[in-house]
Computed example of a mutant assay.
Amino acid sequence: MGNRTQSPPAASVDRLTPSLADLRSITDQVTVQGPSVHFVQENLTFPKASVDPRAALMLEVLGSFAEFERAIIRERQAEGIALAKAAGKYKGRKRPLIPEDVDKARPRVTAGESKVASARDPGVGRATLYSALAETT
């Protein structure tokens, strides 16, 4: 092995980053500093100051496929969410405070009760109550 410096292996090209530009940038930054980059699944190693055109091509091709795969996943996810919303199954996150809770807390706060105590009854934090009171003003 000698004095060769190596970084820990990355499992796969697509696990390092889903962006081709980031992949190229990361491998360049690491190899310029000395260590080599090794992708276990693809069995590719990029040593310091590598000028192997085949390795560079493989990195670009695999990075492009990873970027494409991630875009397809995002597209399918958006389609699934749209279908679920249309079917009434996807409503997003439940609101922490309902309008009735805010209506109950407002007179208490106006009367001088602390916002912390007013937020305790509906079981939310002080910041959540501040936001809700500001929205309905």
Rank of each mutant, 00 (worst) to 15 (best):
R70A: 15
L59Y: 02
V51S: 13
R126C: 10
A56M: 03
D101K: 00
L59A: 03
K89M: 12
G88D: 11
P53G: 04
L97V: 00
S64H: 11
S25M: 12
V13Y: 02
F46Y: 11
A87M: 06
Q77P: 02
A127N: 11
R106A: 09
A66L: 05
V109T: 06
A55I: 07
P107V: 05
V51K: 12
E113C: 07
M1E: 10
V32I: 15
G125Q: 14
L57P: 00
A87P: 05
L129K: 04
G92R: 00
E79V: 10
F39L: 00
T110N: 13
S131A: 15
Q41L: 14
P35H: 06
T27Y: 12
S25G: 08
R108N: 01
L97I: 00
Q6A: 13
Y90N: 02
E79M: 09
A132H: 05
L23F: 05
K115S: 09
R54C: 02
D52T: 01
A111D: 07
L16G: 07
G80F: 01
R15N: 05
D121K: 12
N43Q: 13
A86H: 07
V51E: 12
K91L: 15
E100R: 10
R74T: 13
R70K: 12
T110F: 04
T5E: 10
T110A: 13
F39R: 00
R54V: 08
L133T: 02
E75P: 00
M58A: 10
Y90V: 01
A84Y: 05
P8E: 15
E42C: 02
A119M: 07
P9H: 04
P53T: 05
